[in-house]
Nucleic acid binder design. Structure first.
Length: 273
DNA sequence: CGAGCAACCTGCATGC
DNA sequence: TGCATGCAGGTTGCTC
């Protein structure tokens, strides 16, 4: 479900509603997520703490608490993090409930359970958890020269290269196809073969596509929901993803669907080379 | 080391 | 209607 734009939209939506509020009570499910639910640390560090900041690194959502602990949530494929009245119907697949007061709660719901919940204690640093992650696409580190260096001698197709969080974070299966379409680059191109001009287009279009998606409130294919439960609208702007066989919006050539590294991949054989 | 792929889960659409 | 199959936005750990 969520790539960088969707995670960013959740953070932006939640922030004004939850900053400075106290988490009075924490409840969790006993279901196994991708990582074990840190029950003891939730009780010790999250319950009773006040939320000071909510922000994103890669596709992780971080809540900084007033005791300097961090609650870190990853949405996996189907995770949702949203604000809801505590009286709202009890959904299947709720895994975490943060009660802000007697009437309002932040809820983490994740059908497929590929998501995760982590607590970083005040003695630990959350940056350590993410030491193997590459740069943010909007950061200065994500540059043409950086990509050229990473791509040296790499035969890996550029689509898989861009989806590797060690290269750059936040770009998942939908936006990888979208970015490469906008950049006019075939997804199967071996990374080492790309020219400086192509890398420049990839950097520019990565930022442009992701920013447009954030502005549109993210992409809702089947189940992405914003923090207020509404869907995003970027799916209306998708140029190639999910459009196999349909005409390219630029040149009318049918969009090709292939599978790369086990993931559906879409491109226009005429606009991309 | 790099690259590909199965595995982790549930639910939905499709086809027989 | 029922059952089998394939597919889905992420990440990781195993294989070659």
């Amino acid at each position: 479900m969520p790539e960088l734009p969707e995670v960013e939209v959740v953070c932006l939506g939640l922030a004004p509603q939850v900053i400075e509020r106290q988490i009075q009570k924490v409840e969790w499910s006993n279901k196994k997520l991708r990582l074990p639910v840190p029950r003891a640390n939730l009780k010790q560090w999250v319950e009773g703490a006040q939320i000071k900041k909510i922000f994103r690194r890669a596709k992780y959502i971080l809540l900084r608490l007033d005791n300097n602990a961090h609650l870190i949530i990853h949405l996996g494929m189907t995770g949702k993090l949203f604000l809801v009245k505590s009286s709202a119907p009890r959904l299947k697949h709720n895994h975490l409930r943060l009660f802000l007061d007697t009437t309002l709660e932040i809820r983490f719901n994740d059908t497929r359970r590929f998501g995760s919940i982590q607590v970083v204690t005040p003695q630990e640093s959350w940056q350590d958890l993410f030491k193997d992650l590459g740069p943010e696409p909007f950061g200065d580190d994500f540059s043409i020269s950086y990509l050229q260096k990473c791509a040296l001698n790499r035969v890996q197709p550029v689509k898989n290269f861009l989806m590797d969080s060690r290269t750059v974070v936040g770009i998942g299966n939908i936006y990888a196809s979208e970015i490469l379409f906008c950049a006019g680059v075939l997804p199967s191109t071996p990374s080492k073969n790309l020219s400086k001009v192509k890398w420049k287009k990839i950097v520019k279009n990565s930022r442009q596509v992701l920013q447009k998606a954030i502005n549109a409130g993210g992409t809702t294919i089947s189940d992405f929901a914003r923090s207020n439960g509404e869907s995003g609208y970027f799916q209306l702007d998708l140029q190639v993803y999910g459009r196999g066989g349909k005409p390219c919006q630029k040149c009318s050539t049918p969009i090709t669907r292939t599978v790369m590294a086990g993931r559906a991949t879409y491109f226009c054989p005429s606009c991309q080379s």
